[in-house]
Design a protein around this nucleic acid. Structure first.
Lengths: 207, 207
DNA sequence: ACCTGAACACCGTTCAAGT
DNA sequence: ACCTGAACACCGTTCAAGT
């Protein structure tokens, strides 16, 4: 049922269709498996056709990252400072954990700043409203963001849990590691997240 | 001056020689430019020869990461808690900034835990000595590590500064971003690092 | 035990050609 | 304006062969 538009045939390909198919490909097969050719195959199209909508493989990955960033829920501007910060952090985390294999795209690329404008505004607005000098607000934002990025890298695949095989390898050579081994062996990501986030939000609340 | 060993000719290739050449290649040309073939060329050797000492490209990258981790200076076990933590954090940062293009290998891969044993011991020992219950010591370690990873990712290339082109794009649509624009536009990595680290170390000192 | 080189199944991207 | 396909210069890795 092609509609009554004048164009010879509706474009099969769209930047959006490509990015969504790309995200699905990453979700299914992982980042390392992404290739222009495979993505084209999935879309039933010649590999070169993708280049009409996307600037190359790197731009494709940036685009997928932007899709992910755009999916971060931004809480209503009203609520109180701590609640807002916490809601944003949890929303960011949930968005990343919803696509664990694609999350490194967001966590390890410098995106065009406009992509993250809404969430950044949502963080800065209550900080400024609470009387924070802008410089300190930016410091706070960046400290929390660094923690989020580090934590999520760990949750998502990369970055050491320090868990692995610490078992009883360590003894005389590393007595403290041996003593803490049971806690190093497991990692409750949820608890680690709340623990670190509370420290940072407490520090921002304080002054 | 080949020495008097019985072997027909000393091995030209060593795992260590390969890893160091790999690190140099990353330093010069960046991570994306690393290939087994290019590394072999640099060593004056057939590409396939590398496979006698290294398990493949991924294992090569792990090996380079381990070289970097091994270069983290571990402070003497004595000093006081806060001083030790701070020294380790600064040492970690300095080691990564010494090889900014290779740093993501450390920051984004799950290394065999034994690699990081010495630094982890150096963090946990003073925490336990100060009376921290081991579970809390591990939480503290992980929170600081997450912050370090996130901060260094930002310093080193990846992860948003939020600086970019926020200039005056934002106005009515994002008044808080507009108000903080001058501080978003620049990023004093040193200051951000100290700011966040102090918050975390203060929180660990407290109880 | 280590090194080699040909071969295989892939890549990203340029370019000229089609509609 | 969009899509195509051949071609180019690369990849990582297997395998059989050399010493």
């Amino acid at each position: 049922m092609t509609s009554r538009r004048g164009r010879p045939s509706q474009a099969v390909l769209t930047r959006e269709r490509i990015l969504l198919a790309g995200l699905a490909l990453v979700d299914e097969d992982g980042l390392a498996a992404v290739s222009m050719r495979k993505l084209a195959r999935r879309l039933g199209v010649d590999p070169m056709s993708l280049y009409n909508h996307v600037d190359g493989k790197d731009a494709l990955l940036d685009g997928i990252a932007e899709v992910l960033v755009a999916s971060i829920p931004v809480p209503p501007a009203k609520a109180d400072l701590r609640e807002t910060m916490s809601a944003l952090a949890h929303g960011f985390r949930a968005a990343m954990l919803g696509h664990p294999r694609a999350a490194p795209l967001v966590l390890t690329r410098r995106l065009a700043s406009l992509t993250a404008l809404a969430p950044v505004e949502a963080v800065l607005a209550p900080l400024l409203a609470a009387g924070f000098p802008p410089e300190r607000a930016v410091h706070g934002l960046r400290a929390v963001l660094a923690f989020l990025i580090g934590t999520l890298m760990r949750e998502v695949e990369a970055a050491p849990t320090l868990g692995g095989s610490v078992q009883r390898v360590a003894d005389l050579s590393a007595p403290a590691v041996a003593a803490a081994a049971p806690y190093l062996a497991v990692c409750d990501h949820e608890a680690e997240f709340e623990f670190g986030l509370r420290i940072l939000l407490d520090a921002l609340d304080a002054p």
